[in-house]
C-alpha cells in the first residue's frame, strides 16, 4: 500500500470524508461508511452510501451514478477493469460487488500471491440488487434489471430481466 493511500485511509477522519463528498459531489456518505478520498472514486449527485459500507478502488475507476443507494454493509471493490453503477440503481444491504479475480494456475504459488485479473463490472441504470447478492468480476447487469436477494451474478443480465439464484438465471422479463 502506498504512503498516500495509507494516509487517506487511516488518518483522515470519517466526518471529513463525509463533508468532502457532500460539498464536492453533493452526495451523502455515512460517517460510518468507509470510502476513501480517491480520484478513482466518483459518486454522483444525490447518491447515498449507508453505514458500514466499504468502497475501494485500487487501479481502476469506481463510478457511481446519481441518486444511487448503497445499502448498509455493502462491499464494492474496483480494480483495473473498473466498476460502474448507473443512475437510480439500488444495492441492497450486505451485497458485494467485486471487480477482480486471482489467477490460480500455479499450484506451487499461494493464490493470494498470484496475479490479479480484472475484466470490470457494469451495472446499468435503474437496477435493483437485492440484499446479500454477490456480483463477481466480468458481470454485466443491463438497465432496469432486478436481482433477487442472495443471488450470485457472474454473467450478463438482460435489460429489464428479473434474475434469481446461483448462478443467477432469468425468471421473468419485466413489462
Amino acid at each position: 500500500m502506498k504512503l498516500g493511500q495509507i494516509a487517506r485511509r487511516f488518518l483522515i477522519p470519517s466526518f471529513v470524508v463525509t463533508g468532502v463528498y457532500l460539498v464536492k459531489h453533493r452526495c451523502m456518505v455515512s460517517p460510518k461508511a468507509e470510502v476513501e478520498l480517491n480520484k478513482l472514486i466518483s459518486l454522483g449527485k444525490g447518491t447515498d452510501i449507508s453505514s458500514f459500507a466499504k468502497l475501494k478502488a485500487n487501479d481502476g475507476k469506481l463510478t457511481v451514478g446519481e441518486n444511487v443507494s448503497i445499502g448498509t454493509c455493502c462491499f464494492i471493490s474496483a480494480d483495473q477493469g473498473g466498476v460502474s453503477i448507473g443512475d437510480y440503481s439500488m444495492v441492497g444491504p450486505n451485497s458485494s460487488i467485486i471487480g477482480n479475480n486471482y489467477r490460480y494456475d500455479q499450484l506451487d504459488v499461494p493464490i493470494c500471491l498470484q496475479e490479479k485479473t480484472s475484466k470490470g463490472i457494469h451495472i446499468g441504470e435503474n437496477v435493483w440488487i437485492g440484499a446479500g447478492t454477490v456480483v463477481v468480476d466480468g458481470a454485466r447487469i443491463e438497465s432496469g434489471a432486478i436481482v433477487a436477494p442472495n443471488s450470485v451474478v457472474s454473467g450478463r443480465v438482460p435489460k429489464d430481466a428479473i434474475v434469481q439464484g446461483n448462478p443467477a438465471k432469468v425468471i421473468f422479463q419485466r413489462r
Partner: peptide, 17 residues
C-alpha cells in the same frame, strides 16, 4: 418470485403473454 417463475413457465408453454 416463484409466482413470476410460474408465469414465465406458463407463458412459454402456451406461447401467450
Amino acid at each position: 418470485l416463484s409466482q413470476l417463475r410460474l408465469v414465465t413457465a406458463i407463458e412459454q408453454d402456451f406461447d401467450i403473454k
